[in-house]
Design a protein around this nucleic acid. Structure first.
Lengths: 213, 213
DNA sequence: CAAGTACGGCACGTGCCGTACCGATAGGGT
DNA sequence: ACCCTATCGGTACGGCACGTGCCGTACTTG
C-alpha cells in the first residue's frame, strides 16, 4: 500500500529541511549550495533533487514547515487587539532574528523564480489574506470598522508597510513599529475630526512616540 | 584636466548599462551573466568589473540611470491629486511592462547583497521618502491632512501596499489599484462617521469598484 | 612624438549545477 | 524466511559562469 510508501523518505525529507534552515542561518542563503546541504545532511544530491526542483523550492518548504501553528487570528471581540496579536506572531516568526534573513531571501528568490512566487502566494500569502478578510469582515459587521472599507485591500494595506520595512529599508520590525502602523491606518490620513474611538487611537500613538525617544 | 578624463570610459559605461537593460529585458535578470553583457556590449569583462563590483551593482546603476526625471512631486494645492500623480509616474516607470521585472529583480538582489540594499535605500528610497514627507508636511500645515498623522510612516504606508502588490502577489500595478489604495488610506479603517471630504473619497472608491466589474 | 592608460580578447583555475551511475540496504509481498 | 524493488549515500561527470591575469592595441594626454 501507499500508507507508508517511503518511511525512509519522510525521515530524510525532515532531515534535509532542518539542515537547510540550520545551514542557511549559519552562512546565509546566498552562500548556501545544494552540495553543502547534502553533505551536512549526510544525503546524496539525488535525494534532494528527487524532492525539490530548485533551491528556492527547498527553502520554501523548509520555512513553511515552521508555520505549523498557521498563525490564526484570535477573536476577542476587539478587532484592533486581534489584528495586533496576529501580526505580532507573524512578525516574531518570520521577521525575527532567527528566520528573518531566510524569509527575506525567500521573497528575493520569488523575484527570480516564478514557481517560488506562485507557491509562496498559494501556500502562505493567500491563506493569511483569507484569514485577515474573515476577521475584518466580522469586525465590520459589528461596526468596529468603517462600512466603506475595501476588504480586498486589507492584506495589502495592513501587511504592505511591514513588508516595506522588512524588504526595502531592512530596519528592525519591532512591535512598536507595528503599533504605530496600526494606529495610523485605523485613524486614516485624511483631516479630522474623527470619532471618539479614532481620537483615542491617535492619542495612543502619540504616547508611544514620546515613550520611545 | 579631469574635465574629460576618460571619454572612452564614459561611453563604455553608458553602453554597458544600456546593454544590461536590453539583455535583462530579453532573457531576464536570473539568466543574465556578466559574460553575456560583455559579449553583447563588445566589452571585456575587466572593463565591467572595473566599474561595478557585482551584477547587482550594475543593475542598480542601470535602472537608476532611468530616473533622471527624479520623480518629483507636483504641488497643485490638492495633496491627494499630487500624491496620486507622483505615484502614477513612479508606478509607470518602475512597475510597468518594460522595467517592472528588472526592478523586482533588483529588490530581490537586495535581499542577498547588503551593498545593493544600502545603495538602493540611499539613492532611491530615501530621496523619495524625503520628497513624500515634504509634500505631506505642507499639506498637513494647510489642514489637508490629519494633524495627528505620523509623517515618518508616510513612505511605508503609501508605498508599502504597492510594493506588496509588486513583490508578493505580483499582480499588475494599475492606476486603478493606486486609486483604491489612496482612497482607503485617506479614509482610514476605523468606523465612521468621517467628515464630508472622506465620505466623498469613499464614494469615489465605490464608483471605481463598480466601474471595473 | 612619447608616455601612460583604458581597452578587447583570450585563457585559466574554481565552484557549483544537475545528471548519471554505482553498490549497499531496508521493507514489503508472498 | 525469502527475494524484489525502490530508495539510499557516494562519486564522477560535463557544462557554465565566475573573477583574475596577461597581451597586444588604440586612444588620450602632455
Amino acid at each position: 500500500m501507499t500508507d507508508t510508501p517511503r518511511r525512509r523518505g519522510a525521515d530524510r525529507t525532515k532531515a534535509i529541511m532542518r539542515t537547510t534552515l540550520e545551514l542557511g542561518q549559519e552562512i546565509g542563503y546566498a552562500n548556501l549550495s545544494m552540495e553543502a546541504v547534502a553533505a551536512r545532511a549526510g544525503a546524496g544530491k539525488h535525494t534532494i533533487y528527487r524532492r525539490w526542483s530548485s533551491k528556492g523550492a527547498l527553502l520554501l518548504d523548509s520555512l513553511l514547515s515552521l508555520n505549523e501553528a498557521h498563525l490564526d487570528y484570535p477573536d476577542t471581540g476587539d478587532v484592533v487587539a486581534d489584528v495586533r496579536a496576529q501580526i505580532y506572531a507573524a512578525v516574531d516568526l518570520l521577521a525575527g532574528p532567527s528566520y528573518g534573513a531566510l524569509f527575506r531571501a525567500l521573497v528575493g528568490e520569488a523575484q527570480h523564480d516564478r514557481q517560488v512566487a506562485v507557491a509562496l502566494n498559494e501556500r502562505f500569502i493567500a491563506p493569511q489574506a483569507d484569514k485577515t478578510v474573515a476577521r475584518l469582515k466580522a469586525a465590520r459587521d459589528q461596526g468596529q470598522l468603517s462600512p466603506d472599507f475595501d476588504l480586498d485591500l486589507s492584506m495589502a494595506i495592513l501587511s504592505g508597510p511591514l513588508y516595506f520595512q522588512l524588504l526595502i529599508t531592512q530596519e528592525p520590525l519591532t512591535h512598536e513599529y507595528v503599533d504605530r502602523v496600526l494606529a495610523a491606518l485605523f485613524a486614516g490620513m485624511g483631516p479630522g475630526p474623527r470619532t471618539r474611538a479614532s481620537r483615542a487611537t491617535a492619542a495612543d500613538r502619540r504616547a508611544a512616540r514620546s515613550s520611545r525617544s
